[in-house]
Amino acid sequence: MAKYGMVIDLDRCVGCQACMVACKAQWQTPEDYFRTWVKHIGPVQIKDEMVFTSYVGQCNHCDNPPCVPACPTQATFKDTETGIVLVDYDLCIGCGYCVEACPYGARFINPVTKKVEKCDFCYPRLGEEDPACVKTCIVSAKVFGDLENKDSYISKKISEGNTYIIATKEVNPGPNVYYKGRRSKIEAIIKNYPPEKKDTLPAKIWSNVLRPFVILGAGATFIGSLVAFLFQINQGEKEGEDEE
């Protein structure tokens, strides 16, 4: 058992976007699609500070990921061994409910494979080397490791203090990507890219209106048939003769 996470030190990040390039080289995502991103924010005024920062983001591998229940076939699932939110490409039908559900916009439908894609902490490289973005970072702003192992470097980084998550009071799915740096930088990120709770229209209609109707209808006819059968047993067998 492990729980992998990441710490991103915004005070170290220079916004060079090398992590985006490394990720793209690793996963060969189509043009204009990225599993990780660096968005430049600022200069903006947060309270009495002038902030200029980069929003280095990717899938947060949340503790309660909203994308997992949104997926009808559960192609998206939280791996119990590693805590990484993974996608089973056999099961993905490319509906994009999870894309809509993600508060961070970390997912996209790959226009070539027609299936969903997102950061998986370079799952195939796990145990061998760090994720591509971590390994390539010129200033070591990104740290990857096991959050449950108290001796790991990442745990020490977090226990140093000044760590934040991107969440609001309303939307907090328990992200496992932590941010370090001046507090005003995190506030600027949340102000510019607030995590949003979104419901998709078809899914809403299904769970609120149609599912009760379909389940009730199918259940009612089934129970109706059952009751009729029990009545029939009670009355004893009769031949179809006495219809006249």
């Binding site: 039908i93 994009g96 998709t200 299904w206 006819t221």
Partner: peptide, 26 residues
């Protein structure tokens, strides 16, 4: 993808309607 989202729901409804009749039929 938007149409696939609707297709899922419509698939469920259509199957649900047939299943309603199916138990009576059986």
């Amino acid at each position: 993808p938007a149409l696939i989202r609707w297709a899922i729901i419509i698939h469920f409804i259509a199957v649900g309607l047939v299943v309603m009749g199916l138990s009576v039929h059986i």
